[in-house]
Amino acid sequence: MIKEIDAILDENPKAGREDLIPLLQEIQENQGYLSENAIIKVGKHLQLPTSKIYGVATFYNQFRFEPKGKYHIQVCRGTACHVLGSSTVLDQLEKHLKIKADQTTKDNLFSIEVVACIGACGLAPVICVNGEFYAKVTSESIKEIVENYRNKND
């Protein structure tokens, strides 16, 4: 079940500024992203200016500011994947979906996230869609993978 922002904050009544990052992580875990509302509410709760919270949140790659799509695509940009062409893969994926990393398509179907190393270097370049891994992807195969998800009827 998805926990509401208020419920998470209520569970941490004594949270101070040192708890900012764990709180943001917990909210993202539950909501899938950090909404503007979440940042405003955390600001009120911790009595910190929203500008500071937004500053901290945008500093770290782990936080996203748009809801995840129905199919969340993680593109590995670790060393092995990089050597085997993951930057081209990411580029093609972005062009194909007409969004950038950390964004979500208008129909809320797809979102892209860049991850540092997924831990499957033998399969490089690798992507992961909703937990399912795709090995040795190419600029061509990635379009096929995306279209298969798009045509899925679930």
Binding site: I39, S51, Y54
Partner: peptide, 26 residues
């Protein structure tokens, strides 16, 4: 803005070469 005026209307956003100074949510 933060220390003298006590407002914090602006802060650093993003990181590294993408950093800018701006208000909340840019």
């Amino acid at each position: 803005c933060d220390e003298v005026m006590g407002i914090s209307a602006i802060d650093f956003i993003n990181r590294g070469s993408n950093s800018i100074v701006g208000p909340t949510f840019n």
